[in-house]
Design a protein around this nucleic acid. Structure first.
Lengths: 220, 220
DNA sequence: TCATATTTTTAGTCACACCTAAAACTATAA
DNA sequence: TTATAGTTTTAGGTGTGACTAAAAATATGA
């Protein structure tokens, strides 16, 4: 059973909205994510239900099935591998890759993905720090905390952002933060929750609590 | 004005069937090439005519316009660059690349193609020896050499004969050589100048130096 | 020239993925 | 509990790109 490009996109959206299949997702939520109308979503949910990649109860939202989860993870794997390719091999900036990867992820060729994975040396994380599922859909999770949760003098490494909008990525780039940067919390201002961060042992960065809440790090 | 994937495929087919825009192409020929029915082709030709990438006179076939030629060459450029990528970087065999490249060629991102071209070191020919148009649609024609001038292990494609007498053409036909055949020089016998040639990756051919001097090839 | 064969176009359908408008259902709060 | 607000579905329609069947145009040959 094959899925069309549109169906793959719906399934991926449902997977993300359901936090990896742990929550129900409403029709309206899917419509907002896909940027389409609720009426179109109803149609599609009926179809995805028939294909048994979701469980669909009218008026009560959807849950993704095991098969659906597997399919969604395959698409996510392809998306993230292509992102690594674009950044590592074609010198794309990390905020330029999403749209292109969105197209590339629908190319149908298991051999292509296998060889691409090999060519990229089996990367485990994409340029945004998100984990790349293996061919069986298994993900190597890394415990991540929002930067704002870290204590003074703690060290770590930036691994991801919550809000990956182009605007936010551009901002990070401008101030000199990036996925992979080694960081140390120099100060937390109690008054407004803002933080002072040392980046790569040399650059000091001031950020509001809103920014610090959007940056995810692993602690070391 | 943008073209859909289907429209790009039609345009590419028309470009090839018309020998680069030098001949008219019939509805049935297009149908055979695209593997669809003549009725579907009629519909599409009307649409491509409206978009002015072909000139369409009902019942009299189509001619590709300058704009159409440019569009077709862009698609061909993308197809061939992806083929180079698949073979050179992902270790695909030459006969495994076509279907995947057929999908990849429709990805819409000028930056992607520019960077891919750079990454591949601006290749001029694809793995089948076909020339890769530059971003303006210009193609570098390849100098022809007599087969006898080629070295052992060199690959290429037969493009013409010097002596085009019926007798010689008949002889070529009989032994299985033809204009367009992919060849590889397996051996050159010093004693009498005769050659051993692999045709289309499967057939081995022995020919005298007189025959080899009469066949023109491009090298790949 | 005229009947016939071949090619091509038109007419009418279908599936897909979207839309708007309206109806149906669920949730909420007085 | 009942009116109403919000959500979701249904009904009906659109454009794309395919299809079949039938009509129309062109080509061919006695």
């Amino acid at each position: 059973m094959t899925l069309t490009t549109a169906e793959e996109n719906y399934l991926k959206a449902i997977y993300h909205l359901s936090d990896g299949g742990t929550k129900s997702v409403s029709t309206n939520d899917v419509a907002a994510e896909i940027k389409t109308k609720a009426a179109s979503v109803s149609d599609m949910l009926r179809k995805l239900g028939e294909k048994e990649v979701i469980e669909y109860r009218k008026y009560y939202g959807v849950n993704i099935t095991e098969e659906g989860k597997k399919r969604a993870l395959q698409t996510i794997r392809k998306h993230r591998l292509w992102e690594v390719f674009l950044v590592d091999k074609l010198q794309f900036a990390w905020d330029e890759v999403h749209e292109v990867a969105e197209e590339l992820e629908h190319i149908q060729s298991p051999l292509l993905i296998q060889r691409l994975d090999e060519f990229l040396n089996y990367p485990k994380f994409d340029p945004h720090g998100d984990p790349i599922p293996d061919e069986f859909g298994d993900v190597r999770a890394r415990p991540r905390v929002a930067l704002i949760e870290m204590d003074i003098n703690q060290t770590g490494q930036i691994v991801a952002v919550k809000d990956s909008s182009a605007a936010f990525l551009k901002y990070l780039d401008k101030v000199g933060a990036y996925i992979g940067a080694r960081i140390k919390v120099l100060d937390k201002v109690e008054f407004d929750g803002s933080m002072e961060i040392l980046v790569d042992q040399k650059k000091t960065l001031f950020m509001s609590k809103d920014v610090a809440a959007n940056i995810l790090a692993i602690q070391s």
